[in-house]
Design a protein around this nucleic acid. Structure first.
Lengths: 368, 368
DNA sequence: AATAAATCAATCATGTTGATTAATACGTCA
DNA sequence: TGACGTATTAATCAACATGATTGATTTATT
């Protein structure tokens, strides 16, 4: 799957670095690229020529008004590559086609009471066929990413069918592009890293509060996977009281307090304020503890909090986490900045699509 | 300090990789190097020729008895480069000259009740002069590393003098080589990584129990420093009870229980077994908690425990940590293996010397 | 005239590829 | 038993490919 040097996807590290820089900082002229990459202007000329020819970059309008020859900013070509994302959730499957700049071009979804392999596969296959049919033959799909919770079968007896399903392999059959699978919370982190609208440092920890709590760790601008593909398992972080983060900071905990489950969109989020406030207080305490742990270990300057929750709730969680962190001992370390994510419910599906993007277009394949 | 391309120290990434491989796996023939680096045999021939010419590698006796042409294993040249290490402790300063394979060639030390800048600087300068005098002019010193606890001034009013001392800059003056400074617990980790006799994976966390508790994080074979040079501050990891690791797992805690301080060598370690056992039990609990946190965050497969304690104590700590970890919740993660370090009291001084070594000879400069 | 962006042409550094040589073990045959 | 051919492995040589740098040059602007 990862062994074929598909010619148009075979980018060098320096080409990837250029694309990654423009993705994060917006359109840049060649001179700026030379300066920040440390490469010679000549090398940038050669590399960008190739990238433009291959349809990954567009030359913008020349910028006049400054001393010296005008510069021509280079921007990402939206159709440079397309990516498919499949997100598997507790109540919802989603399939999306995402372009090179992170726009969702096509989106389909289906609601269920609980996911079965048959239903998910049928939805994915049919959606895939429809999408592929609708595309011009010139459209370049680089790959598909799947965001799925780990251990679906732990959710209850009706989920036992997932035990021996290899979603990735089942869907990859017959497709002309590779398929990637990752924990859904990690994909949310990947989305923030690749498509996020926040200003982020090279190192940060991402906490994503959905039915479960999970996260991702970004070091040196790359999402860390870990030797056993289980880094960023923030939901499993131990917290005081013999518990783990996901016991305190997850929507499932809120649902338990509430006595009912919440629908898979913000519009249905009707939660009594006192119940929510209490949940937030406890969750924030756990989040603060975990954030400080990460900082002591990795010198993390920023912790991003996001989740499949309404913006107001996310804000309250972030605020409460900041407050809770003040009460925890931090001798010898600098408390990290807590900021909100920018993608909320769309983080996981965008992150799914970001998996092939990172693999082919980010320096180092963004895997580690 | 780090900007000059001293010719004999200007090694390419591939040269560094070769040296690093041989350092860890022992003498290797060229064919093996080609296989594991992925470079062509021809490239290995060229690179090793240069490394031998420059005095970093020695060709060993050819190995016969196998099918095919005999192979000539290449080993590190002990005099390939020399490194100075200065370790500053609570009761002890040490200065050492360490060769390319991690042997301590010269060692001097001085005991005090508490360190003052004057005394430490005088000791270092005099020792430095003596050592440099004793060396042949052909000896190649690559640099000096300093292992010092952070925030010395927090130890008490008599240490206030350290507030505005830049040890690194003061000592660098007049020296022909660069000086590096790092937290002493981090250098212990660096020593295990570079000179350690244990078999280690590419990712591990190192816990070092001395007067304080600290540690280091190694990812992808590189010691992680962090954007603010404070990664691996494991002593500051929060643990249940509103405390931090160093409140539970440090020799200073033991000394408090004991009502007296312990001398800076194993021979003076006379601790009643019940006091030690109780201390170990509490420390192990905290260590296990921290180990699990690190694993959830980074998918760490191995945690190394070492310290400035007798081997038996270290073993008891490791054993107790393993046990304590079983009692902590670990849903969603694999508990890491707990192993003992191999360097004990010499870890920090060796690690100090390893700082310049890593900077010049490890892939990526081993800083991150 | 100064400045900055971008390119051209020549060169260099560092790798690969494919052919070649060297030294050995092992099977086979006289 | 000893001699000899063959497969195997290590290592190198020579030619070439890739991808960068350097220094001179062109262009468009204040």
């Amino acid at each position: 799957m990862l062994n074929d040097p598909i010619p148009w996807l075979d980018l060098s590290q320096n080409e990837r670095q250029i694309l990654s820089l423009i993705r994060r900082r917006g359109p840049l002229p060649r001179a700026a690229l030379a300066h920040v990459t440390g490469l010679s202007p000549q090398a940038i000329t050669n590399l960008t020529r190739k990238l433009i020819q291959n349809g990954f970059l567009d030359a913008g309008e020349v910028v006049r008004g400054k001393v010296g020859q005008p510069s021509t900013p280079l921007s990402l070509a939206p159709e440079g590559a397309l990516f498919l994302g499949l997100k598997l959730g507790r109540r919802l499957v989603e399939l999306a086609l995402v372009d090179f700049v992170g726009h969702i071009k096509i989106h389909r979804q289906e609601i269920y009471s609980h996911p079965t392999p048959e239903r998910v596969l049928a939805f994915a296959r049919q959606g895939l066929a429809t999408i592929l049919d609708s595309l011009a033959p010139s459209a370049r799909i680089a790959g598909m990413g799947i965001a799925a919770p780990f251990r679906l079968w732990d959710w209850g007896s009706e989920m036992a069918g997932w035990h021996d399903v290899d979603l990735s392999a089942s869907l990859a059959e017959g497709l002309a592009f590779p398929v990637f699978l990752e924990n859904d919370a990690s994909t949310a982190c990947a989305a923030e890293l690749i498509f996020g609208r926040s200003v982020l440092p090279r190192d940060f920890v991402h906490l994503y509060i959905a039915h479960f709590a999970g996260g991702g760790v970004v070091l040196d601008g790359r999402l860390r996977i870990g030797p056993r593909r289980n880094a960023g398992a923030l939901g499993s972080m131990p917290i005081p009281g013999g518990r783990q983060l996901l016991d305190a900071a997850s929507v499932s905990t809120l649902e338990q307090r509430l006595g009912r489950s919440l629908p898979p969109d913000d519009s249905g989020w009707q939660v009594p304020t006192d119940v929510e406030a209490q949940w937030i207080a406890e969750a924030a305490h756990a989040l603060a503890f975990v954030a400080l742990s990460a900082t002591a270990l990795l010198d993390i300057p920023v912790v991003v909090i996001d989740g499949a929750v309404p913006p107001a709730t996310r804000r309250a969680l972030a605020d409460a986490t900041r407050t809770a962190m003040e009460a925890l001992p931090a001798a010898g370390i600098d408390r990290p900045k807590v900021i909100e994510g920018s993608l909320a419910r769309s983080a996981r599906i965008l992150g799914a699509a970001a998996l092939p993007l990172a693999h082919f277009f980010e320096p180092g394949g963004a895997l580690a």
